[in-house]
Amino acid sequence: MKLLSVIILLTAVAFSPLYGQSKTDEQNVKQVINGFFQALSDEDIPSLRSYCRTDFTLLESGEIWSLDTLEAKIKPYFGQGARRINKIDFKKIVIKGTSAWVVYFNQADMELNARKGTINWLESAVLTKNEGQWKLTLLHSTTLPKKK
Score class of each variant (00 low, 15 high):
118 T>P: 01
75 K>V: 13
96 K>W: 02
99 S>Y: 14
84 R>N: 09
78 F>D: 06
80 Q>N: 09
102 V>L: 09
133 Q>E: 07
114 A>S: 15
99 S>P: 02
65 W>I: 02
130 N>S: 10
92 K>I: 00
109 D>N: 14
122 L>Y: 10
62 G>I: 11
117 G>D: 10
108 A>S: 15
97 G>A: 06
107 Q>E: 14
127 L>D: 02
96 K>R: 10
75 K>G: 02
115 R>W: 02
116 K>A: 11
132 G>R: 04
65 W>R: 07
109 D>T: 13
122 L>R: 12
104 Y>N: 11
119 I>P: 00
116 K>N: 13
98 T>K: 13
84 R>W: 10
62 G>C: 09
78 F>V: 03
79 G>M: 04
115 R>E: 15
65 W>A: 05
66 S>I: 08
126 V>W: 05
95 I>P: 02
110 M>I: 11
111 E>T: 14
127 L>F: 03
98 T>S: 15
112 L>M: 13
82 A>T: 04
72 A>L: 07
83 R>E: 11
89 D>G: 02
70 L>N: 03
98 T>G: 10
114 A>D: 15
123 E>T: 09
84 R>H: 09
63 E>M: 14
62 G>H: 12
126 V>R: 07
75 K>C: 04
103 V>G: 11
86 N>W: 12
121 W>L: 04
124 S>W: 03
110 M>Y: 14
112 L>Q: 12
112 L>D: 05
89 D>M: 05
113 N>H: 08
70 L>R: 06
67 L>F: 06
65 W>D: 08
133 Q>S: 07
81 G>Y: 03
109 D>A: 14
130 N>P: 00
118 T>G: 03
125 A>N: 00
75 K>D: 05
101 W>C: 12
71 E>K: 10
115 R>P: 00
110 M>V: 11
91 K>H: 07
128 T>K: 04
81 G>Q: 01
121 W>S: 04
81 G>H: 01
77 Y>L: 12
88 I>K: 01
120 N>V: 06
132 G>C: 04
